[in-house]
């Protein structure tokens, strides 16, 4: 009971202390968008015969004719009511757009992160056990390749090989076969939804669509995870308690996986949190290459059109996710190392 209350207090405190930061991000984005030289009214009144009157009318409709402080206050009031404005690029409220697209991005990012962790942890441990060996060099080579190849290159390459040449992958457009019936809409996570309605074929189809894009992303973030695991493991493996454990005749796997890995995990968890938040925003290229209807490509399209509301909404979303992820990371620290929970 005591533990739970302490945790709840911690969570509440953390959330409260993040409010100023999120507010700062909101105001800053608002100002930056308005400093950018593009004028959304001009861009969107761009019909073949739209003149100055249309531009002015649109400006009034978007509230851009009012002074900046007034616009900012209106915007803050709307956010407080849960209204993020309307996107001119899609014609829908930003909240609706984000609600439709966030699950797509999250599903992709989480799958990619899972794949990356499954590959990075063993690779990192192997490399740490035999530093300087062929295995270590191989891991270093893999990581370097993953990092230095931009995601749109590796993505297009995977598409070319597995879809165009070999024909193993389904056509790399979106989350589901376009000819198939529309998926159930429960959580927005297709794998979860198909599992819930018990549609095995649909689940396999959705998983097949997910493989190439998530591999592309996983390749890109393999390096920080594997390298961090290796460095952290190396430091821990040199510690006295490992020598003691070995001296006491504990089996090798137990020493490595239980005693060493648990102690080496803290920095890996930290970097995982950062990697996750970065991936969510930075996977715009992957989303573009695979026509993935996610939030990042949505924000990029809006930015190119100087469409204020979606960009501001996206940044607010990212700031909130960052706060949440950091909170989760803090809680995970407590699990990995009870000393950090205090």
């Amino acid at each position: 009971m005591q533990v739970l209350r302490r945790a709840a207090l911690r969570v509440g405190g953390r959330l409260l202390s993040s409010v100023p930061a999120v507010l700062g991000v909101v105001v800053l984005t608002f100002l930056v968008m308005r400093v950018l030289p593009g004028d959304p009214a001009v861009y969107f009144a761009g019909g073949p015969s739209a003149g100055q009157e249309q531009i002015d009318a649109l400006r009034v409709q978007m509230g851009l004719d009012k002074p900046l402080p007034v616009q900012l206050l209106t915007y803050l009031r709307d956010i407080a009511r849960g209204d993020l404005g309307r996107s001119l690029t899609t014609g829908q409220p930003v909240v609706v757009d984000i609600a439709q697209r966030l699950p797509a991005s999250l599903e992709l990012t989480l799958t990619a992160l899972l794949l990356a962790l499954l590959a990075a942890l063993p690779l990192g441990i192997l490399a740490a056990l035999r530093p300087g060996s062929a295995v270590d060099h191989l891991v270093r080579f893999l990581c370097t390749m993953g990092v230095c190849m931009p995601t749109f290159v590796s993505g297009l390459l995977l598409v070319y090989v597995f879809y165009y040449l070999l024909g193993w992958a389904p056509d790399p457009t979106g989350r589901i076969d376009v000819f198939a019936a529309s998926p159930p809409e429960i959580t927005g996570f297709l794998l979860v939804d198909f599992a819930l309605v018990g549609d095995g074929e649909g689940w396999r189809a959705a998983a097949a669509q997910l493989i190439l894009p998530s591999c592309t992303m996983a390749l890109f973030v393999l390096a920080p995870l594997a390298r961090m695991t290796r460095a952290s493991m190396l430091a821990v493996l040199g510690g006295d308690f490992i020598r003691t454990a070995r001296a006491m005749g504990l089996p090798g796997w137990r020493v490595i996986l239980v005693h060493a890995l648990r102690n080496a995990l803290l920095p890996v968890i930290t970097i995982t949190g950062i990697v996750f938040s970065t991936m969510l925003g930075a996977n715009v290229l992957v989303e573009k290459v695979f026509s993935w209807p996610g939030v990042a490509s949505y924000a990029l399209d809006a930015l190119q059109a100087s469409d204020y509301a979606p960009v501001q909404g996206f940044v607010l979303l990212m700031a909130s996710i960052f706060v949440l992820v950091n909170l989760v990371i803090d809680l995970l620290y407590g699990l990995a190392d009870p000393r950090a929970a205090g």
């Binding site: 165009y164 056509d171 000819f179 026509s291």
Partner: peptide
């Protein structure tokens, strides 16, 4: 079905494969 596929190279692949 009119589908948005932002990547031009992917559009070309899809047409050539007959998808």
């Amino acid at each position: 079905i009119s589908q948005s596929v932002p990547e031009a190279a992917t559009r070309a692949n899809l047409i050539e494969k007959g998808d």
